Simulated scan of single mutants.
Amino acid sequence: MSLVFSALASLDGYTVDTSGSFDWAAPDEEVHAAVNARERGIGTYLYGRRMFETMHVWQNIGSGDEPAVMREYADIWRDADKIVYSSSLTGVTTPRTTVEPVFDPAAVRALVEAAPGDVSIGGPTLAAEAFRAGLVDEVVLYLVPVSVGGGTAALPTDLMLDLELLEERAFPAGTVMLHYRVSAPAA
Rank of each mutant, 00 (worst) to 15 (best):
E29T: 04
V4N: 13
F52I: 05
T15V: 14
G174A: 07
Y180N: 01
T54H: 15
G91N: 12
I42F: 12
F171N: 05
G174E: 05
P105A: 06
A128I: 04
A7H: 06
T97R: 03
A153T: 10
Y14A: 08
Y180F: 06
G122L: 02
R49P: 09
T93W: 05
G174V: 11
A187E: 02
V108P: 03
G41A: 11
G122H: 00
G123I: 02
A25N: 06
Y14C: 14
M51D: 06
A154Y: 00
I83C: 11
Y73M: 01
A173D: 02
V57Y: 09
V176I: 10
A26S: 11
T44G: 01
Y73C: 07
V16C: 15
I76E: 04
A173Y: 00
N60W: 07
L166N: 03
V108Q: 01
T157H: 00
A9N: 02
G134V: 12
G122D: 03
F131M: 06
R109K: 04
A154E: 00
V92N: 00
K82P: 01
V102R: 12
T54L: 14
E72V: 07
G91V: 10
G64P: 04
I76Y: 05
A128Y: 06
E113N: 12
S63A: 14
L166Q: 15
V136Q: 05
H56Y: 09
D104L: 01
M51S: 10
Y142V: 04
D158R: 01
L111M: 13
T18A: 14
W77H: 02
S88L: 03
A68H: 11
S86C: 06
V146I: 13
P145M: 01
L89R: 05
E168V: 09
H179Q: 08
Y142F: 11
E164M: 00
A25T: 10
R132F: 07
F52C: 01
L166W: 04
G91W: 08
V148G: 08
P105W: 05
A128W: 14
V16M: 13
G91R: 14
V84D: 01
A34Y: 09
T90R: 13
L126R: 01
G41C: 12
V139H: 11
D12I: 01
S147A: 15
G64C: 08
A33K: 09
P145G: 08
P105E: 04
L46N: 03
S88C: 12
P95M: 07
L143D: 00
V108T: 06
A37I: 03
D75K: 13
R71G: 15
V57K: 11
V146H: 03
S6M: 11
A34M: 07
D65A: 15
A33L: 09
G150A: 12
M70D: 13
A106I: 02
Y142T: 09
N60R: 13
Y142R: 09
A33R: 11
A130M: 03
K82H: 15
T44N: 12
A33M: 06
D65L: 12
L165Q: 04
Y14F: 14
G43Q: 00
M1S: 10
L111T: 02
G20D: 07
V57I: 12
E39S: 13
D28Q: 13
G43Y: 08
A173F: 04
I121V: 15
Y142Q: 01
S87T: 15
A107I: 04
V35Y: 07
S88N: 06
L178C: 02
